[in-house]
Design a protein around this nucleic acid. Structure first.
Length: 422
DNA sequence: TCTGGGGTCCTAGGACCC
DNA sequence: TCTGGGGTCCTAGGACCC
């Protein structure tokens, strides 16, 4: 048996942990650039705040109900996530971190009372981190997702644990569950299923295998098996190495100035290179892309990307910047209002696996020591304190908007929570 | 004026190999 | 007149997830 543990309204809940004055009140968290609402607690959802709509459109509603609004504070959420995982690990040795706010757990057996086990998980996480979680228990990951969904639907909210351990429960859940709520079925596929008259998970699992295989590929067929109760996805206790890492962020406002966009690109390359070195990998391939703002129908649109195979795989910031720049120059077209630039690294290898260049047999990247010093300085004194000149000095002209940021309570000594006694 | 970022997996089709 | 089959690797694009 597996369990899926997920934190309720994770980002909003993290903010509330450190703001007792907001307990029981509506709270939302905005996406990067303070663009749209990406998390809302129960109180905020009950007002009917639409997720994924631009924040400026919902502003009147937010004001009317005195909703507290935060920018995304990823250092805080990342650290709270770590605490949740560490807490769960004390109760179950075998665990897969699935996302920032979810983990799959192998339930130790024998566990005669699954419901009680779920409650125990909830109590401990809440006691140790202050965060509320839901628990879905079932024989496969996809059914755990279904159970977790059911847990949220339950009227008696204090329970927040749902178990699918027998056939009648499974059947009842699938009869009720709309296909668009199935894990792995998104908007497009849901629309195709609706066209075929399939609206509930129960109807989906009664489609012929051949049709599912043909129309929804092997992914769809695995999904069907999982809902039938046959596991298709193992618990991944050791996280697999990443296949690609990237950084791509929208600008605070649209940009036409090529030199500014280049500076932003150099900045992002530096960020992604730090991630790369932290994961102890070198990259053999680099992709650069640019795009205009697709929401501005009145603007001419352009997007393009280019993938470069690097002559020698590397983790060296100046080297990566150089190639990113070469790629950028090939795809950049003047005269558009750009919204975003980004870089992705792939063909990630362990450093000792590198194939040397035939005509440049230097086995060591030239700047290894420099990169080490740069990473140390930036860890101690803050991101990009030390950087390459190509990243420039005009970040204020393109950086993303974060006007409602909360303190990084748990990761910065100068931003600790303060308590005043009168 | 203001609409997220970081990922994964799968397939089709072309180039190329023997 | 008749013009292969089996395989790999690469890339682009689609769909999905949180």
């Amino acid at each position: 048996m597996l369990a899926l543990v997920d934190v309720n309204s994770f980002y909003a809940s993290c903010e509330q942990v450190f703001r007792p004055d907001l307990w029981g009140k509506p709270v939302v968290v905005l996406s990067n650039n303070d663009g749209c609402i990406i998390a809302a607690n129960r109180e905020a959802k009950s007002i009917g705040l639409p997720m994924w709509r631009p924040a400026f459109e919902t502003l009147p509603l937010l004001r009317k109900h005195q909703v507290t609004v935060f920018s995304s504070n990823y250092p805080l959420y990342g650290d709270m996530s770590r605490r949740v995982i560490e807490t769960l690990a004390t109760l179950c040795p075998s665990l897969e971190v699935y996302s920032i706010d979810e983990a799959f757990i192998q339930i130790p057996h024998p566990t005669p009372d699954l419901e009680a086990y779920g409650q125990q998980l909830r109590r401990r996480v809440h006691q140790w981190t202050g965060l509320p979680v839901g628990v879905g228990i079932a024989p496969t990951k996809t059914l755990c997702k279904v159970a977790s969904h059911m847990a949220k639907q339950q009227r008696e909210r204090s329970r927040n644990v749902f178990v699918i351990a027998d056939e009648p429960t499974r059947v009842a859940c699938l009869r009720e569950l709309p296909v668009e709520e199935i894990w792995g079925i998104g908007k497009r596929i849901a629309a195709r299923l609706h066209q075929r008259g399939v609206h509930r998970a129960w109807e989906f699992i009664h489609l012929p295998d051949t049709w599912v295989r043909k129309e929804l590929t092997v992914t769809g067929l695995r999904l069907k098996r999982e809902l039938e109760g046959t596991p298709q996805h193992e618990l991944e206790v050791d996280p697999p190495a990443k296949q690609m890492i990237g950084t791509a962020k929208s600008f605070g406002h649209n940009l036409e100035d090529e030199s500014l966009i280049r500076e932003a690109l150099a900045w992002y390359v530096a960020e992604v290179a730090v991630k790369l070195r932290r994961q102890k990998r070198i990259a053999g391939r680099l992709t650069v892309f640019v795009e205009t703002n697709p929401f501005r129908k009145e603007d001419r649109q352009y997007c393009n990307q280019i993938q470069l195979k690097l002559p020698v795989p590397t983790d060296d910031t100046p080297e990566l910047c150089h190639h990113a720049r070469l790629g950028f120059d090939q795809i950049f077209r003047p005269g558009y209002r750009y919204k975003k630039v980004g870089v992705w690294l792939s063909d990630l290898l362990r450093p000792h696996a590198v194939q040397q260049h035939l005509f440049d047999p230097d086995p060591q990247p030239r700047h290894t020591r420099l990169m080490q010093v740069m990473d140390q300085v930036n860890t101690q004194y803050g991101k990009a304190t030390l950087r390459t000149a190509s990243a420039g000095f005009r970040r204020a002209d393109w950086k993303l908007k974060q006007e409602l940021l909360s303190p990084r309570y748990t990761t910065r000594i100068d931003e600790l929570m303060q308590i005043h006694a009168d």
